[in-house]
Design a protein around this nucleic acid. Structure first.
Lengths: 173, 173
DNA sequence: TAAAATTGGTTTCAATTGTAACCACTGCTG
DNA sequence: CAGCAGTGGTTACAATTGAAACCAATTTTA
C-alpha cells in the first residue's frame, strides 16, 4: 500500500521543472548509481556489525562463510566460490589464520596448495555469525512481500548475467 | 511464505539455537553479497568506459551529472544530491577543475562557499557522456521486462529505506 | 561585540584495494 | 631428464578511500 506513486518505470517527463533539457540524466533514477548506493549502505552496516563483534572484515567473513559449508578448500577454490580475487583471498586468509579462525595445512599431493579449514574456534564464530547475517538478510527481506522477494531474485540474476557479459565482451554498440 | 511470520519490526528472538547448529549460509543467495557483486560488476564496466573515453572517475562523473541539471551548486549542495561525502566531492571537484570541466567562483554573499558550474568544455563532455550512460542503463534494463523494471524500481526503494534505517538506528535486536 | 560554536571546504595520514611482479612447485614437451 | 609454460599463492607498490584534524568565514550567544 505504501508502494505506489503511479508507474514510475517509463520515460515520460511532464516535469514541472521548466525547460529540462531532454537528455539530462537523473542520477537518482540511474540504476548503476542506485545499486551502488544501496549496496554500500547495506555493506557498511553489516561490516560494522561484523567488525564490532568478531573483528572480521567482509572478505574474511566471506571466506569463513564458504569454509563453513565446504571444508578442505584451497585459496584457488575460494576464488572460484567468492567472486574475490587471489590477493583479497590471500589477505583474508592471513587475517583469519592470525585470529585462529582457520587452519592451513599443506596438500601433500601438490605442495603448492594449502588446504584450509575452520578451526574449532572458527567454527564457533561461524555458528554465531551466521544467525547474525541471516538476521540482517531477514530484516532486509522483511521490507518486501514474498512476491517481491521472488521477483528480486530473478531480476538480480538477469542483471548479473548482463553485467557479466559486459565484462566479457564490453558494451556492444 | 517461507521467511516471515515475524513482523519485521519486532524484536523477538525466541530461537531455540541452543544445541542446534544454525543452517549454513549460502553466500550465493545472500542478498548483501549479491548486491555487492552486481553493483561492482556494473560500476567497474561503466568506470572503465568513462575513464577510457573522458578520463573521468565515477565520483567526478556524478558531480558532472548533477551540475548538468542543476547549475550554481556548492560542494555542500553536491553532498546532499549525491550520497558522496565532503572529501570525495572535494577531490572530484579538484579533478574536474584541473580538466577544465567545471568552473568555481566565490559566493559573494558567503565567502566560504564556492559556486560550481560546468564549463563550456564540461557541458560538451556532459552532452556526450549522458547518452553513453543511458546506453548502459538501457542495455541493463533491456534484460528485464517492462513489468520487472517497475518491480525493481519499487523494490530498490524499499530496500534503500530499510538500509537507511540501519544507518540511523542500527539493526534492532 | 568578543568568545564560542557552526559551517564550507581542504589537507593529512592511515587503512583498504588493485595491479603487477614474483617465488615455489608442477606438468608437459622434446 | 632439461627446459619452459602454467598454477598456487604471496609480496611490493601505487592508487583509492575514509577519518580526523584543520583553516577560514559565518553565526550564535552571553
Amino acid at each position: 500500500m505504501t508502494t505506489d506513486n503511479s508507474n514510475s518505470s517509463s520515460t515520460e517527463f511532464s516535469d514541472p521543472i521548466d525547460a529540462v533539457r531532454p537528455d539530462d540524466l537523473r542520477l537518482e533514477k540511474f540504476l548503476p548509481y542506485r545499486l551502488s548506493v544501496l549496496s554500500n549502505r547495506v555493506s557498511n552496516a553489516i561490516a560494522d556489525a561484523y567488525s564490532a563483534r568478531f573483528d572480521l572484515t567482509i572478505p574474511a567473513w566471506r571466506v569463513m562463510a564458504i569454509l563453513g559449508r565446504f571444508p578442505n578448500l584451497s585459496a584457488a577454490d575460494l576464488v572460484e566460490q567468492t567472486a574475490m580475487d587471489k590477493v583479497a583471498i590471500s589477505r583474508a586468509v592471513s587475517i583469519l589464520i592470525k585470529n585462529d579462525y582457520i587452519t592451513r595445512s599443506e596438500d601433500l599431493a601438490d605442495r603448492r596448495r594449502q588446504v584450509l579449514n575452520l578451526s574449532p574456534l572458527g567454527r564457533d564464530v561461524y555458528d554465531r555469525i551466521v544467525p547474525l547475517a541471516q538476521q540482517y538478510e531477514n530484516d532486509l527481506m522483511g521490507s518486501l512481500s514474498a512476491e517481491e522477494r521472488g521477483q528480486l531474485d530473478s531480476i538480480i540474476e538477469k542483471l548479473m548475467t548482463r553485467a557479466q557479459d559486459w565484462a566479457n565482451r564490453g558494451l556492444i554498440d
